[in-house]
Nucleic acid binder design. Structure first.
Length: 993
RNA sequence: GGGUGCUUAGCUCAGCUGGUAGAGCGUCGCCUUUACACGGCGAAUGUCACAGGUUCGAGUCCUGUAGCACCCACCA
């Protein structure tokens, strides 16, 4: 056998006592990768029917493309969360036997990456502009080579089962070719154009931005009321004394130098007479007209608006309506240009603002200044205040692309999960604006457009093609220069689902995996990315890029705050996995802050929250936590306490593995023939064996449903509950006696077979969420349960049909649990949980008696009983603490162990509770409308409940009476029998009926 | 201005197509029981934001109110 694990398999007895994820996880991943388990492989026949989707050709496949992280970045909590979900899906479908591809890759992230490298250069005292473009781009590539491996390493630690051989990068030759092809084709279709327009301009980065890259937030500013002197009317002397000036209200006084009009509302009586006259623009002396436009709200400010078409989007529109000239007063870096009066030229915009106000004030042209809250637009990367700025840019005309993209979601060809995100999508798509795709950066895909000396544009797939076009036009070779701009990062990202699969070539991968099955993403990039992929996919592939979009929430810190460097609340997923000492954590959080003064506060908060740093939790615990977090909520609070709980869950799994392996390897050692024989024949399954199989089947169903619904929280809780509360708490405890060497051979064989197959199946069921620990245990377990295969990664996904529901067994074990819990309740509340006590049963029905016969020994074992005795008909019970299970009454003789007073108090509480339930049930059944209208099933259920409450009522009353009588006697049993006196007390109590 | 969510146990959150509330953590009590003290057993805790409505019945559906988030948008 070529099992790569065989060398490392230790005998189960040598399984370490506790689970140490750090020691096994990296090795396991290295083996997976070396064995190439993550490459798509031919679909296995006999695919699990649950969610497999065979194509027309009959082959079943599954594909997810990763949302490409920034190549020079590191993965944060959100990535780790997202990767966990994609990996769980990928592993699930791979195990189902589908041909499965999780396509990995990274994004060049134009602005973000360029900024990082520029900052590095600054550290060396070099400005970008001091380098040539080629030299700078060289630097970025070098940085990419240097840091580009980080993400790969992180993803491996997370267990991400991507096909590394297919890793792509948006600036790869192949993808770059796709970008050019897409640009040229859109241009050919007339959907890309170049135009001079007002754009969002970042004066720090010196580039245009798309609307989406501008974030507006409310900030405190001022509203300046400025006086613009009226130009006296030629004729004059109309009788009414005209005012000497108009007051305009503005939040941006520095742009007044570019004013080309003042607007008032046409219906505003105050100013109606002035429409058509002029004001003299202060500081410049220019005369500008007073115009009327409905846009002006008479109630705001003074009712007069200065119009600056070159520096405001609204004014630009008004300017167009009224044919106003555009006067640009800013240089690209937002300093005043030569349009400004000489004294102001070259001043940065906010300094200019102060100067202008000073000068106006000196001329008594500032009427007043009032505080004013306004929305300030800032670049999402630079944080700089964005200027509306007049430049030549490239645009995608999106209206034509948006239509089919809207239709695709309307018709369900693309389905958002949860569905309400489609509303967000529609809202944006229906109001979509043309997309500015050119950026004045150096890092990115250079726009495939060339210009001749007359500025004629040649869009072409190559410089040669462009030259050819120019030659055709001019009839001779002319010198061309390529456009300096690069494309918005999201342009190449929009092609990702098909460019990574080989487009524009018709590759087999493209044919097989496009459209992909699901896109897993956060709602924050629905517009940036999801919408654009749908548009581009339909435009170039004539097919949607994915069938479903699973939109998950955003990971926040334990307080609900967004994790950010400046808040100092970032938790690195790798630190959760490996742990980190406090000093290292502090250093990490305070290094490289944009605002260094925040460091002290961050340090204080970090010390408080993690006084001892972060302990190691392992990948599986982290992944399981992510699964639990994957509710439909949009804010997901990441709390380390949960990871810690899941670390314990991993340990629990480890421990039960040690138990199971111990039990099963004993079987192998001791009697291989017998084991083989019993495996062949149908084992004598006990009720517990049938029950746990039944429960496993239900769990498989629950997990399948949850995964199909992208409800990983529900999958996680079903798995957690089955593992801990059913398998460990009950089944393992129940089968312990049967696994003892002295137990009956048949029963032992059945218990072993069940334990082995259930546990092995559970490991496969857990594997997509907890890949490492399940592989580690499975490698040890598989040989013992005669399961073949080299890795759990390629083992088949469990089928619920193999573990059918067994109502009979469920009822049987339900009864057992009821009786055990009843007894434990008494003992637990009396603080004698570990004392072995006798149990008496009254009112036992025939079926109770039969079950008792079958499970008596088990009951004694589970509830720690000395004996179980059924009271004869009419036999007077001794004073006892009691519990009622269905029709059965459980009695634990008080006999010096239990004080009547505490039992009385306990009964009192039960009576109270029962009385409430009873009253409610009676009231309900007393209403004729209920009996008439409710489904018969519900009525019957309610009747049964009522009967149960009534039985309890009488039972409890009887017990109360008896215990009360005993309490009043006030004698034996007053004291707890402990130590040496216990025997005597018990004896005397037993003697006193 | 338009839109979308959220409000359930001390905390963080589940609760599917309506049948009368659950989990984890935390809290309290008992327990070294031979897989696990990273554990076992038991316990306590909720006028499901508020007000109406539909219904035999509402945490669950409808309307409104309040508070809190977020997204989009050009009010100077």
């Amino acid at each position: 056998m070529s099992n790569p694990y065989n060398q490392s398999v230790m005998p189960p007895s040598e399984m370490p006592k506790t689970y140490s994820p750090g020691e096994i996880e990296p090795h396991i991943y290295a083996r997976w990768e070396a064995a190439d388990y993550f490459a798509p492989r031919a679909a296995r026949t006999g695919v699990s029917p649950a969610t497999a989707e065979p194509t027309e050709a009959g082959e079943s496949h599954y594909c997810i493309v990763i949302p490409p992280p920034n190549v020079t970045g590191t993965l944060h909590m959100g990535h780790a969360f997202q990767d966990t979900i994609m990996d769980a899906l990928t592993r699930n479908h791979r195990m189902r036997g589908q041909r499965t591809l999780w396509q990995p890759g990274t994004d060049h992230a134009g602005i973000a990456t360029q900024m990082v490298v520029e900052r590095q250069l600054e550290g060396e005292g070099i400005r970008r502009t001091q380098l040539t473009r080629e030299a700078f781009v060289e630097r970025v590539w070098a940085w990419k080579e240097h840091s580009g491996g980080t993400i790969g390493r992180q993803m491996r630690r997370l267990g991400a089962s991507v096909d590394w051989s297919r890793e792509r990068f948006t600036m790869d030759a192949g993808l770059s070719r796709a970008v050019v092809e897409a640009f040229v084709r859109l241009h050919e279709r007339g959907l890309i154009y170049r135009g001079k327009r007002l754009v969002n301009w970042d004066p720090k980065l010196l580039t245009a931005l798309s609307d989406l890259e501008v974030l507006s937030s409310e900030e405190q500013g001022s509203l300046w009321h400025l006086r613009y002197p009226l130009v006296p009317e030629g004729g004059n002397g109309k009788g009414v004394a005209a005012p000497e000036y108009l007051v305009v209200a503005t939040t941006r006084p520095e742009t007044m130098l570019g004013d080309t009009a003042v607007a008032v509302n046409p219906h505003d009586e105050r100013y109606r007479a002035l429409i058509g006259r002029h004001v003299r623009l202060p500081l410049t002396g220019r005369e500008i007209p007073i115009i009327a436009d409905d846009y002006v709200d008479p109630a705001f400010g003074s009712g007069c608006v200065k119009i600056t078409p070159a520096h405001d989007f609204n004014d630009y529109a008004i300017g167009r309506r009224h044919n106003l000239p555009l006067i640009n007063v800013f240089a690209p870096d937002a300093r005043l240009n030569d349009e400004a009066p000489e004294a102001l030229r070259g001043l940065p915009r906010f300094t200019a603002r102060e100067r202008i106000i000073e000068q106006l004030a000196a001329q008594e042209l500032v009427e007043r200044i009032e505080p004013h809250k306004l929305m300030i637009p800032r670049g999402d990367r630079s944080g700089e205040v964005i200027e509306p700025y007049l430049t030549d840019q490239w645009y995608v005309s999106v209206a034509e692309l948006a239509g089919p993209a809207i239709a695709a979601v309307e018709s369900g060809r693309v389905r958002f999960v949860p569905d309400n995100w489609s509303k967000t999508y529609f809202q944006w798509m229906h109001n979509i604006q043309d997309w500015c795709i050119s950026r004045q950066l150096w890092w990115g895909h250079r726009i495939p457009a060339w210009y001749d000396d007359a500025n004629n544009i040649y869009v072409a797939r190559s410089a040669e093609d462009a030259s050819a076009q120019a030659r055709a036009r001019h009839g001779r070779d002319v010198p061309l220069r390529q456009d300096d701009d690069v494309l918005d990062t999201w342009f190449s990202a929009g092609l990702w689902p098909f460019s990574t699969l080989g487009w524009p070539d018709a590759t087999p991968e493209l044919a097989t995996f496009y459209p992909t099955d699901v896109l897993v993403t956060g709602f924050d990039i629905i517009f940036f990315w999801v919408a654009r992929m749908i548009m581009m996919g339909l435009a170039f592939m004539d097919e949607v890029p994915f069938r479903e979009v699973y939109v998950h929430g955003l990971i926040r810190d334990a307080e609900g705050q967004k994790m950010s460097k400046s808040k100092g609340n970032v938790i690195d997923p790798i630190d959760v996995i490996d742990g980190i000492e406090l000093p290292a954590l502090l250093a990490k959080r305070t290094a490289g802050l944009m605002q260094p003064h925040l460091a002290a506060g961050i340090e204080r908060a970090t010390r408080k929250q993690f006084p001892n740093g972060i302990p190691a939790h392992g990948t599986d615990a982290l992944r399981f936590t992510f699964a639990q977090l994957a509710t439909q909520s949009r804010d997901l609070r990441f709390d380390l306490a949960r990871v810690d709980a899941n670390r314990k869950f991993c340990n629990k799994l480890w421990q039960v593995a040690r138990f199971a392996l111990g039990a099963l390897s004993a079987a192998v050692d001791e009697a291989p023939q017998a084991a083989a024989a019993s495996a062949a024949a149908t084992p004598m399954y006990s009720a517990a064996d049938r029950w746990i199989r039944s429960r496993l089947g239900a769990t498989i169903e629950a997990v399948d449903q949850a995964v199909a619904d992208y409800r990983f929280d529900m999958a996680a809780s079903a798995l957690y509950e089955f593992t801990w509360n059913e398998l460990c708490d009950w089944y393992v405890e129940i089968v312990k006696p049967a696994l003892r060497p002295e137990a009956q051979a048949d029963a032992r064989a059945a218990a072993r077979a069940t334990l082995g197959s259930v546990f092995e199946t559970l490991l496969r069921l857990l594997h997509p969420l907890m890949p490492f620990i399940t592989e580690e245990i499975w490698q040890r377990l598989a040989p013992l349960v005669r399961v073949t295969g080299n890795t759990i990664t390629l083992a088949p996904w469990p089928r619920a049909a193999d573990f059918p529901r067994d109502a009979d067994a469920d009822a049987e074990i339900g009864w057992l649990r009821g009786v055990v819990e009843g007894a434990r309740q008494i003992k637990g509340e009396m603080d004698i949980a570990m004392r072995r006590v006798p149990l008496l049963l009254a009112d036992a029905s025939q079926s109770d008696l039969e079950r008792l016969r079958r499970h008596g020994a088990l009951l004694s074992h589970l509830a720690a009983l000395t004996e179980i005795r059924v009271l004869a008909q009419g036999e007077a019970p001794p004073p006892a603490a009691s519990a009622i299970v269905g029709e059965l009454t459980l009695l634990v003789p008080m006999a010096g162990l239990i004080e009547p007073a505490s039992e009385l108090a306990r009964l009192e509480k039960l009576v109270q509770k029962n009385r409430q339930e009873l009253a409610r049930a009676r009231a309900k059944l007393g209403k004729q409308e209920f009996v008439d209208n409710a489904p018969g099933e519900v009525v019957a259920q309610e009747r049964a409940r009522l009967a149960d409450f009534e039985r309890r009522e009488t039972g409890l009353a009887r017990q109360m009476q008896q215990v009360r009588a005993l309490a009043q006697q006030g004698e034996p049993g007053e004291r707890r029998g402990g130590g040496g006196g216990g025997g005597a007390t018990r004896a005397s109590a037993e003697g006193a009926p």
